[in-house]
Amino acid sequence: MNAALRETLSPFRHGCGGLKVRVNGEACVLRCSGALWAPDHRTLIASDLHLEKGSAFAARGQMLPPYDSPATIAKLEAEIEALDPTMVVLLGDSFHDSRAIDRLASADRLRLEGLAHGRRWVWLEGNHDLKALAGALDRLSGEVVTTLRVGALTLIHEPGAAPEPGEVAGHLHPCATVVAYARGVRRPAFLTDGKRVILPAFGAFTGGLDVRHGAFADLFETRPLVAVLGRDKVHAIGWDRLA
């Protein structure tokens, strides 16, 4: 990480194992789960849950194990239990397709209802779940928005070509392959230059797009920090260690 980027981000190891950085001056903790915690606003942000992706693939004859939604919700439950946020923002593509809410098991829907109880719960519209969310509030708690301001942060699903200050986005599912001990390990990753941050996908079956892909090339003026998710730490990785 160059000196200018280090000064902008002011990164240091948080007690949870994540990295605390500054995005547009706002304190943000990049957590091992792939979620972002804005402590000054007690706001938890997670992107691209893609609930019911497994059942969508099964309907097309590709038999994935039908456990992605329970696993993803359990992961979200753990974050909420650890942090007790006053607001949770799901940053788009929370559902894999327009009929995913119909396929969501009643037990999983009740778990989401329980998590939303007593706090502000916000669904941002994504490209996958735009139609699903259009009629969702008769079955799910919360509110549906296109963008949201949280302090100095601007929350949106898809990163813009000309971002608003402090943009927090998802959509691209960034991941990185890190070379260590003569082999490559592929892991989800955050990308940030202190002006914007792109979150990894939070969902269990989501996959990822390598940070060296051309889709990221025009989003940052200089090489951003690559913050790779480890088992119990988020690791700042130099570009020279990426495969």
Score class of each variant (00 low, 15 high):
L51V: 03
V88W: 05
L155G: 03
L140D: 02
G126R: 13
K75T: 05
A152H: 06
P70H: 09
S106M: 06
E81F: 05
S69A: 15
H96M: 10
L64S: 07
V89R: 12
P66W: 02
A71V: 11
R149H: 11
W121G: 06
A162D: 14
V150M: 05
I80W: 08
G166W: 06
N127H: 13
I80M: 15
L110A: 14
E143P: 10
E77G: 00
E125H: 12
G142E: 11
V122L: 10
P159Y: 03
D102Q: 11
V89P: 00
G118E: 04
R103D: 03
I156V: 14
L90V: 11
V145A: 04
L153W: 04
R109Q: 07
G135D: 15
L76T: 01
G114T: 00
D68R: 09
A82T: 12
S98E: 14
L148Q: 07
K53A: 00
L148N: 01
L83K: 09
G160A: 13
D84V: 12
A132D: 12
S69G: 08
L140H: 02
K131T: 09
G61L: 05
A58T: 04
E77M: 04
G166R: 08
L137Y: 03
V150K: 03
D93V: 11
A74C: 08
L64P: 13
L148M: 08
V144G: 11
K53L: 13
L110T: 00
L110V: 01
S141C: 06
